[in-house]
């Protein structure tokens, strides 16, 4: 037993913890729990912790994965409970195991999106939203390391399922998790850019599940 993986939830107040801060939060959780995590060798030792798919500040998740290394065997069944007892609000560990696959094989993320419309009739907006995102032309301007560019969203969105409730339109869909990474915030950005009449007053997102390229649940 050397490399291990934890699946955890990051919800509520914890969604505002940035990726960098979360690394430190995790390290301290391990230290409080007495988990024998492994450190890098060298001048400035740091805990060998890696979060598989960094999450944007403000996005919640039911399915975060974190790889780490230990110096001796730990009780995997007991580990989530031990860690939960010393975790901040909103960080909850679900499962610990020895991973069989590399995180690079994650391809799709199931997302739950909530679009708030404070004053508009959501049942009237619903067909327009469906039609907008059904188009193979749906795109957004996004900034990357190489500068600003037009980005076609359509190939990287799948299985969109829409429902309307008073004040809120809900969308469950798959977005590409890696190569390319599609931040679901781009959906709202695309509306603001190309269909402002459909743009929500506020949008919130939750990651629900991770899949590989063949749509098998990734663990």
């Amino acid at each position: 037993m050397d490399k291990l993986r934890l699946r955890f939830r990051k919800t509520g107040k914890a969604v505002y913890i940035s990726h960098l801060d979360l690394m430190r939060v995790m390290q301290r959780i391990f230290l409080r729990a007495g988990t024998p995590i492994k450190y890098s060798e060298g001048f400035n030792p740091h805990a060998l912790i890696s979060i598989c798919l960094p999450l944007s500040v403000g996005t919640a998740s039911e399915c975060e994965l974190m790889d780490f290394r230990v110096t001796r065997d730990v009780d995997l069944a007991a580990l989530p409970g031990t860690l939960n007892a010393v975790s901040p609000e909103g960080v909850r560990f679900l499962e610990a195991y020895e991973p069989e696959r590399r995180a690079a094989q994650i391809k799709w993320l199931r997302m739950s999106c909530g679009f708030d419309y404070d004053t508009r009739d959501t049942s009237a907006l619903l067909p327009a939203l469906e039609a907008y995102f059904a188009s193979p032309e749906v795109k957004v301007t996004r900034r990357t390391k190489r500068g600003e560019g037009e980005f076609g969203l359509a190939p990287h969105l799948r299985e969109m399922s829409w429902t309307a409730e008073p004040g809120i339109v809900r969308l469950e869909c798959l977005v590409s998790a890696q190569e390319p990474t599609v931040n679901p915030e781009l959906l709202a950005a695309s509306l603001r850019e190309h269909a402002p009449e459909l743009a929500p007053d506020f949008a919130r997102f939750t990651r629900l599940e991770t899949y590989d390229a063949d749509m098998a649940v990734f663990r």
């Binding site: 107040k13 505002y16 301290r28 500040v57 403000g58 010393v86 609000e89």
Partner: peptide, 21 residues
């Protein structure tokens, strides 16, 4: 509050919920 937090710098300082609070 949920609506303004994404728009400000370092929102984690405005939420509480830390360990040992």
């Amino acid at each position: 509050l949920e609506r303004i937090l994404p728009a400000v710098q370092k929102p984690a300082r405005y939420t509480g919920g830390e360990y040992n609070e």
